[in-house]
Simulated assay, not measured.
Amino acid sequence: MGLLDRFRGGVARGGSALRAGSGNGENARYLAEWVRTHSGVEAYVEPKTTVTDVTVVLIAADGEWTRRVVGERGARRLAGDLRIPVYDVRKTGYPQRMRDHDARKRIERKRALERDLGEL
């Protein structure tokens, strides 16, 4: 059984969502490493859309974030394995620190572009 089978509620139960297997274990390994290298990480589960399956957004204390497709059960199991809080974004919304981080990054990109254009 592959890692995504477990995320999508495959027939087998038990084990760790972080255990490598066939399938897309890269997402789980990436998310585990991201949690290890960032502080104050929380998981926010996003609903399935017409374009993507259920995704999880990991948000660090400074507002930096990353998103991966893992499926709903996989997101909750992954958060449990990583010992981080998990929230349903439909109920809680995104934290302000994520929006603040994105705003800071937009300002930094704009300033870098203006600086690069000024050097021409």
Rank of each mutant, 00 (worst) to 15 (best):
M1N: 07
M1G: 13
G2W: 13
L3K: 09
L3W: 11
L3F: 10
L3S: 11
L4T: 12
L4Y: 11
D5T: 08
R6L: 06
F7S: 05
R8H: 02
G9H: 08
V11E: 15
V11T: 13
A12G: 14
R13M: 15
G14P: 11
A17T: 13
A17C: 09
L18D: 08
L18S: 06
L18Q: 15
R19G: 02
R19L: 13
R19W: 07
A20H: 08
A20I: 08
S22M: 13
S22H: 10
G23A: 02
N24W: 11
E26Y: 13
R29E: 12
Y30W: 09
Y30P: 03
Y30R: 04
Y30G: 02
Y30M: 06
Y30H: 09
L31Q: 05
W34T: 02
W34V: 06
W34P: 02
V35R: 01
R36A: 15
T37L: 14
T37K: 12
H38C: 08
S39D: 14
G40F: 05
G40E: 00
V41A: 04
A43K: 01
A43G: 09
Y44P: 00
V45W: 00
V45F: 01
P47Q: 12
P47S: 08
K48Y: 02
T50C: 06
T50G: 15
T52R: 12
D53K: 15
D53N: 12
T55F: 00
T55G: 02
V56G: 04
V56M: 08
V57P: 07
V57W: 05
L58F: 15
I59T: 07
I59K: 03
A60C: 07
A60W: 04
A60H: 00
D62F: 04
D62Y: 05
D62K: 06
G63H: 00
G63Q: 04
E64N: 14
E64F: 14
T66H: 06
R67Y: 03
R68T: 01
R68V: 01
V69A: 06
V69T: 07
V69I: 14
V70Y: 02
V70F: 02
R73Q: 15
G74A: 01
G74Q: 01
G74L: 01
A75H: 04
A75E: 04
A75C: 08
R76P: 03
L78D: 01
A79Q: 00
A79E: 02
A79L: 09
D81H: 06
I84E: 05
I84A: 02
P85C: 13
P85N: 07
Y87D: 01
Y87H: 15
D88A: 03
V89C: 01
V89W: 05
R90V: 05
T92N: 02
T92M: 06
G93A: 03
Q96S: 10
Q96T: 12
R97E: 05
R97K: 11
M98S: 05
R99A: 15
H101N: 08
H101Q: 12
H101W: 11
D102G: 09
A103D: 11
K105A: 13
K105M: 15
K105S: 11
K105L: 12
I107A: 15
I107V: 09
E108V: 07
R111G: 07
R111W: 11
A112K: 06
A112V: 06
L113Q: 14
E114K: 10
R115M: 07
D116A: 10
D116K: 12
G118V: 03
G118W: 04
L120D: 11
L120A: 07
